[in-house]
Design a protein around this nucleic acid. Structure first.
Lengths: 194, 194
DNA sequence: ACCTGAACACCGTTCAAGT
DNA sequence: ACCTGAACACCGTTCAAGT
């Protein structure tokens, strides 16, 4: 099995694919980590003011689904982007946008901060969790989920009745799993009803 | 900086600390991954039937807070445990317990599966996210959070008014961040009121 | 100014050889 | 049955030397 993700990016492999000595890269980046940070910055870079429409909940839903999409656009870089300390235009603009929606929906400063953090941590954590799957082919990922469901369905019925009963509904696609959890959080936010 | 977490566990380092040739370990484990799986199994092992008390929400809260605690008890192993395919007594018993509470609280099979998945993904993702912090000293982790908050508070007020306003409430301790998000999800579950 | 190539201090893993 | 030690194919990184 050839290495995937970040393991596949070695300074030697990079040099080879550039047709250059592996150590030549050190003229431009002091360490491999610095190179990865630069790549992570490029991934995040895009975010403009991005005005979403609809109810507060719909706008928040769009913003975080969008963040998840950005994080998973280059799954090999997902861990690097997620662990990056928050900094840069894009990050701050994104934070400001979310906080504005929460605040204008009637949440207190405390609740705004807590809700933002909860939604952010959920999205970052979920991206970390699914990055390895995003790195494989769709068939490969589906194969794994199918195998897990089959394993669950075959458990002794007398000891694990509920697991057997709902096994077919578990380990579905990651998109709907993410959105279901996101909607739970959004539904519980103390947003003014109008 | 000496390597931390899994990077610190090399076959050579392991051999040295056992006072034995590095390759001797290969008599007992075929690969390093197999060794790590065995360690992950040991981490998960404990879970008995574990009857919690209180309302459904309280019981679910306890169960997932408990799972997070188990996952972070050995932060270096958190990624290994989280990515492990579900298997073994402990895992299945834990799943059965959660599903039972959800089902008995009046959720449909579909909703039971989806709610379980959402709570599980949130907890696994959050553990992945905070494992690096659990690996450092409490002072070190607090130092990082303080620095991030300070960075946020110092942003230009006219462009990021909401960020500046709530900066002091962001990046607090991980325990309350986790519990706040967990409570949001639990609050939104369609549980029978009695 | 930029690239090369040898070298250092590491990895995981294999395998013939020792006891 | 268990351990050793050399070896293979890798890493990230440094640095003197070349152009």
């Amino acid at each position: 099995m050839s290495p995937t993700g970040l393991d596949g990016l070695s300074m030697r492999a990079l040099g080879a694919s550039l047709g250059v000595d592996p150590t030549a890269v050190y003229r431009y980046f002091r360490t491999k980590d610095e190179l990865l940070e630069a790549l992570a910055d490029a991934v995040v870079g895009g975010g403009g003011p991005h005005p979403e429409t609809g109810t507060p909940r719909q706008r928040l839903r769009g913003m975080f689904a969008n963040l998840r999409h950005t994080l998973l656009a280059n799954p090999a870089l997902t861990p690097v982007v997620v662990r990056r300390q928050p900094e840069g235009e894009g990050t701050w603009q994104g934070t400001e946008n979310v906080l504005a929606v929460l605040r204008e929906a009637g949440l207190s400063e405390q609740d705004t901060a807590r809700a933002y953090q909860a939604l952010l941590n959920y999205t970052l954590g979920h991206a970390l969790l699914e990055a390895p799957y995003a790195l494989m082919s769709a068939e490969e990922a589906e194969g794994i989920r199918t195998r897990v469901r089959a394993g669950l369905a075959v458990l002794p019925l007398d000891r694990y009745p509920h697991v057997s009963a709902v096994a077919a509904h578990l380990y579905t696609d990651m998109d709907s799993q993410y959105l279901y959890g996101l909607d739970l959080m959004l539904a519980a936010l103390p947003i003014d009803s109008d």
